[in-house]
Design a protein around this nucleic acid. Structure first.
Lengths: 170, 170
DNA sequence: TAGATTGTTAATCGATTAACAATC
DNA sequence: TAGATTGTTAATCGATTAACAATC
């Protein structure tokens, strides 16, 4: 269905060891467990969302996280008018308390959902607080120290890829 | 800076033809034009955003589109309470008018920013209206006819990739 | 000419696919 | 045994990198 052939699937699975039975097949319930373990999805990760604007709200309300063991531990914002308001059934907390929130709630991942001009500062504060994994939605390039993993979700890039196919079709 | 070596850059650029001068280098202003042309970014594309919730609002307010020639032609929603309200300085329009909006404003790309349960129907309506490129933010798998390009931006997947690195580090 | 940088061929590397023995 | 499917080796394919002549 996904366009991946059987040889590819077997080859990939073999990197995790042997989990099938020759002549019979794979027990998918066991395979699921093995895959989740190999991908590190066995225990939950706490996530902090920085920025309680539209994007931050959309992310906090996003239903797809919990299925993979992610939990939104906090939504923080610098804007005093936003602090205390409810997003996804949770009160927005002050950005100033980021460090203590990260420490106390064992936050592993930070999501930057702020305007571009503040993205670098947010990243600095996150890394200073000990966060080693950052997902950046701001359309800005961010510098982080070695050992900190950063991924950027770039909406324009997604549109450009679509555009490329539009062009090919005529 | 990006970790790509010079041989790779030259090889890639060579697919577009010769735009540099041996012994001298590349004229970056000319190269920009050539690259934009090759990537099909020379003319603007009209985009319709379906869903005026937090995610739709965030996308409509996203500043990164216009730099690449994308223009939000309309934001539509089924909710009568949202129709008429302003998002990014533009009135939300009824979902029922999708087909005429697409036709009249020459919309090339549709963005699905609705709940998962309605994503398939939205995709059906977009393709029926003649849209050939769809960007799906709903955490749902969508079927589209041949000839329609669909990309899914999956926030959970992005988090999972970060998680994998967390695990490697210990 | 000396130095520098492109464009391109050849060598290397890694990933995908095919084939098949092992096994149920 | 016959049929089926895994695990793994070998073959193929494509992409990256190195090397160097061509050129300014």
């Amino acid at each position: 269905m996904s366009g991946v052939n059987s040889a590819q699937v077997r080859k990939d699975l073999s990197y995790l060891g042997s989990h099938g039975t020759r002549g019979v097949g794979y027990r998918i319930d066991e395979l699921r467990v093995q895959l989740r373990r190999a991908l590190g999805l066995t225990h939950g990760y706490a996530v902090v969302i920085v920025g309680a604007g539209n994007l931050g709200s959309a992310l906090a309300n996003y239903g797809g996280f919990s299925a993979w063991g992610f939990e939104v531990a906090a939504v923080v914002d610098v804007d005093r008018n936003k602090v205390g308001t409810e997003i996804a059934g949770r009160a927005v907390e002050p950005f100033a308390e980021l460090a203590s929130i990260v420490a106390e709630r064992n936050v592993a991942i930070g999501i930057i959902a702020t305007p571009s001009w503040s993205a670098q500062e947010v990243a600095d504060r996150l890394t200073a607080a000990g966060v080693r994994s950052i997902l950046n939605f701001a359309p800005a390039t961010i510098e982080v120290p070695d050992g900190v993993e950063i991924r950027r979700v770039d909406l324009s890039t997604e549109l450009q890829i679509l555009t490329y196919h539009l062009q090919q079709e005529g």
